[in-house]
Design a protein around this nucleic acid. Structure first.
Lengths: 188, 188
DNA sequence: TTAGTCATGTAAGTGGTTACATGATTAG
DNA sequence: CTAATCATGTAACCACTTACATGACTAA
């Protein structure tokens, strides 16, 4: 049982889902491909943490709809309060930033402009997702209704927005510095 | 040549370093253990991107001091302007947050308080590192001197501080929500 | 005397990505 | 007619972690 397994169990606490749906819904929280998820689900089923019912579909391939079992819920409840591992972040951009002086300021500008575009796209996506949760959810959560089924989703989205915004602001600040440098070198 | 290799090359643009020093200095930018770095350095040496001189030490084990070669610098200059891969973040805390309703509010509080402590520690560390760079560096960088040897380090530290601060603020906000919930349930 | 730092390496195992494989339906 | 979505799976590979291994010096 690795971290991803607990992530899948966490999603299943909201109701039954197919492997395909789990694969899509885990993405914003934990990046994983279907090739990692399908074998894991099979393993978890063998160990009794989840079970599935095959569902035949017309016009679409058949699917397996998974649910969390009592055992699975117990395991999840035990795991959540345990000491949390340090977050792991890997971003090529940090390495490139470290040696940004190696390339011309025009190329450097492109690099950061591309990043800004990426963060803008993410921010829009998150804002759409918050809208989808509805304003009733928003007021319920900000009043402290932890038991609301969307509590987790909402506060995670808030965090994602704050992170993207802070990284975007940083990119803009670096662009300003590059601009200052360019002006300085022209004046010479 | 994977991403970590370019990270090591990036560090070596600042001057020669031993494998051990590289291992320590890459940590804030890219997490990697010595067991991954030493074989990589050997491979990069075989391919001509770096070379080393063995340095004998008294009172300490001997070491290999690596430098970047012309070939290595060329490879790095080619890599930096290339399209940048999406950042990967994996944080157990997000999964736990998603199903925070499963545990009691006292346990939930502990989880977030521990995190706040972690971020506080990180922030202090980053602030010490910025201090070490010196206030002359700070003014030089904020005036846009990209060519300054500490430019990359400084702007990366600024980003790390902003990230930690935004995550810390989020944790505090979640604690407030948990507190609101607790008060609400007591009044009932 | 125990733990920590410096310093390098290998071996085994886990976690994660890419590619291979199939196949029907739908939208541009 | 091409690409995307739905849906599941396996195989090979790469990236990363943990554990094994050694050894001298230093500070609590």
């Amino acid at each position: 049982m690795n971290t991803l397994s607990y992530g899948l169990l966490a999603l299943l606490t909201r109701g039954p889902r197919s492997g395909y749906e789990l694969m899509q819904q885990i993405q914003p929280i934990w990046q994983a491909k279907h090739s990692q998820i399908y074998p894991l689900l099979a393993l978890m089923e063998k160990r009794g943490f989840v079970h599935y019912v095959p569902v035949a579909q017309k016009d679409k391939p058949d699917k397996k709809v998974y649910s969390i079992t009592g055992e699975g819920l117990d395991a999840l409840r035990e795991w959540v309060p345990e000491p949390t591992g340090e977050p792991v972040k890997r971003d090529e951009m940090l390495l490139k930033t470290y040696c940004i002086g190696l390339i011309g300021s025009d190329q450097a500008r492109r690099l950061f402009e591309d990043r800004i575009q990426m963060y803008r796209g993410k921010l829009e996506k998150y804002r759409r997702m918050i809208e989808e949760l509805g304003s009733e959810t928003e007021t319920a959560v900000t009043e402290g209704h932890i038991e609301h089924p969307c509590f987790g989703s909402y506060i995670l989205l808030k965090r994602a927005v704050a992170n993207a915004q802070s990284d975007l602001d940083w990119c803009r600040w670096v662009l300003e510095l590059i601009h200052l440098n360019h002006i300085g070198s022209v004046e010479k």
